[in-house]
Amino acid sequence: MPKPMEEYRVEDLNPGCVIDEPGNAVVYHTGNWKSQRPVWNEQKCIKCGVCWNFCPDNAIMRKEGGYFVADYEYCKGCGICAHECITQCITMVEEVV
């Protein structure tokens, strides 16, 4: 299991800087970059998955029942899903801190 970036020490690095844990970037959560988050209106959603297809961050998941939801740990809040959604069922809502 990859560990958070801050916990790596120089001794942990491989010779030649080879990284032998494929895809360990998932420990880095880009979700706190966002200033707005997508919210789905399931009344209007036709479960087509266009939002899922256009997400540059693989941050949209299909849940039980076939509706889609953002993985807020990674969603950067770009708003592409809301703009591309065919039925316009996604609204970008401002993040409150």
Partner: peptide, 19 residues
């Protein structure tokens, strides 16, 4: 095969192309 956690800017369609 191009995982979440990459640091491309918000809305980067180059990252989407790689995906």
């Amino acid at each position: 095969n191009f995982t979440s956690g990459h640091r491309a800017c918000q809305g980067c369609a180059e990252a989407l192309a790689v995906r």
